[in-house]
Structure formats: C-alpha cells, structure tokens
Design a protein around this nucleic acid. Structure first.
Lengths: 141, 141
DNA sequence: TGTACAATTGTATAATTGTATTATTGTACT
DNA sequence: AGTACAATAATACAATTATACAATTGTACA
C-alpha cells in the first residue's frame, strides 16, 4: 500500500503526479534502493487509474535512472542514483571494466587491433546517436 | 560457478543473454564438448532468476544443436559444436562484449572519448607486453 | 541382484509482470 | 462545429515466475 495522494482536479497529469510522489518517497527515505515498487496493475488498482498510466510514470522514472523496470519481474529502486559517482571512482571503475573486456577478448582470440576497430566502430555510433542500444541477437546459431 | 554476467536493465531478455553468454564460453574454449552445464536450478539460483528462464535458454541452445538436454540427467556441451564456432561467431561475441562494456561505462557517466582513451592506454600496454595483466587497485577511494 | 522410494533432473502449462499499439476521451484553439 | 493534441484507457503481447509433472539417478534394504 503506497498511499500516494493524487489530485484529479489539479489539471496536472496523473502520470506526472505519480512520478513526483515516488521521487518524494525516495528523497525522504520511505523508498530505499532495492525496494520493489508495486506492480503497475497493483498500484493502478489502488489509485483507481489505468495500469498504463502507472506504466508511463514508471517508464519516465526508469529513463531518469531512478528505478529499474523489468518485464516479468517487477520494478525496483536503483542502487546507485547516477550523478554522485565521483570522477576518480568512476575512472577506476571504467578502467577495470575495460580491463575485463580486454582479457575476455584476448581469450576469444581477438587481436588488439581488432578490438580497437570494434571499439571505434561502436563509439562512433554512440556519438552519432547520443545514446547506446543493445545489440540484437537472432534465436538461431 | 559460471559467473555469467547479466544486465537486467538492458532490455535484452534474460534468456537470450544466457544463450549468448554460453555461446561465448564455447567460442573461447572455457566450455568444451562433453562438459556438463549447471542444472537449470543451480544456474538459476546463481543468477537469481527462475529456473524456467534458464530452461528456455537451454532449449534454444539444444534446438541449435549446441548442447544436449536430457530430462533427469542434465545438459551437456555436444561433441560436435556446429561449424560456425569460428570467425563470425567470435567477431559477434567480441562485438557484444564491447557493447556491454560501453553501456556500463555510459551508465557510470563516462564519455565516449574517455572510454577510447582508456582503451588505447591499455591496448598499448597489451601490445608492448604481448600479454595482459590485471590492473592493481589501491585500497580506499 | 532387485525392488522400492526419495532425490534430482528437465518439461509443460498457467499465472504474473511489464510493453507496445491502438482507440477513446478531454481540452484548447480557430 | 471542427481540428489538433495530450492524457488516459483498452487490447493484445512478450518475458518471467510459480506450480505441478515426468524421467532418471542414487540409495537403502530384502
């Protein structure tokens, strides 16, 4: 039971109100990292609104990096709200990340140049699109 | 312990991620013909997912002729992994590997240029030494 | 041996979860 | 009135989980 208070007469869209109420709950600590939010249908029933409206609010929070919504599983408050990762910590983490990728690539038999080529290829797309999207896989081999 | 890395936020279905991770393990030789994979329940527990999701991944690999699943017995890497465990599969595996690293780096707040810088820095060492060595980290922040 | 039975394995199906697409409703503006 | 647009709802769908089941293996005991 979330007990979010909505104002249907305010003219503010419901989905935005839901977004704000949840942000408040996180800000004041009533929602903590790892907590599971109600399912879109459960919260919709509680608020007497359509579950798509809740889904829309969740999607906005997801894109803002506040929560993680996972089809078939649920939605959760994220562990690490993005901004406050300090520069130094981040640099180390990225270095370690790349190191692991390099070691795996080497194990797969990739050459350093091949690796760099792929990186450049994908970084170019990253810069062009402004954001990254997962590669798609076929079901077959 | 398989230590497969999943990304629950990527939007790529878990079962497909499991398929790809296992293909990579076969491609780079960490899984060899005859090896037994973890049981669906064991792998599910390790990955904190439902065992039916693992079963779905195994079924796809089975239908692709990569593994053999036997009710009541277990699942095994087939003696003759289909031919395409070769250049093309490896390229795709390396691409996917880099993609995952990029997505994680982006989430950590790294810029494309910063990422490329680190890659070049480490690849240079790779070329010089002829091999890779893990980075050492100091304690504390 | 062999037989009964529990434990362990993968399988099948339904229920639950979020997602995508389309239709409906409401509101502001001409 | 009419039109355009945003918000909400309806519907169908895909991913994951829950539950019950079937096949195989291991083990105890006659």
């Amino acid at each position: 039971m979330m007990n979010l208070e909505l104002d249907f007469r305010s003219g503010v869209p419901i989905y935005l109100q839901v977004v704000e109420r949840i942000k408040e709950r996180i800000a004041d600590g009533r929602l903590k990292p790892g907590d599971q939010l109600p399912t879109v249908r459960a919260l919709a029933q509680e608020l007497r609104i359509n579950f798509n409206t809740v889904a829309r609010a969740y999607r906005i929070l997801d894109e803002a990096g506040v929560i993680s919504t996972q089809q078939g599983r649920g939605t959760y408050i994220l562990e690490m709200p993005p901004p406050e990762v300090s520069a130094e910590i981040r640099r180390r983490a990225v270095r370690a990340l790349i190191q692991r990728a390099l070691i795996e690539a080497e194990r797969m038999g990739a050459s350093p140049d091949e690796f760099v080529d792929f990186v450049n290829e994908q970084v170019r797309r990253w810069k062009e699109n402004g954001r990254l999207q997962p590669i798609e896989f076929e079901e077959g081999v």
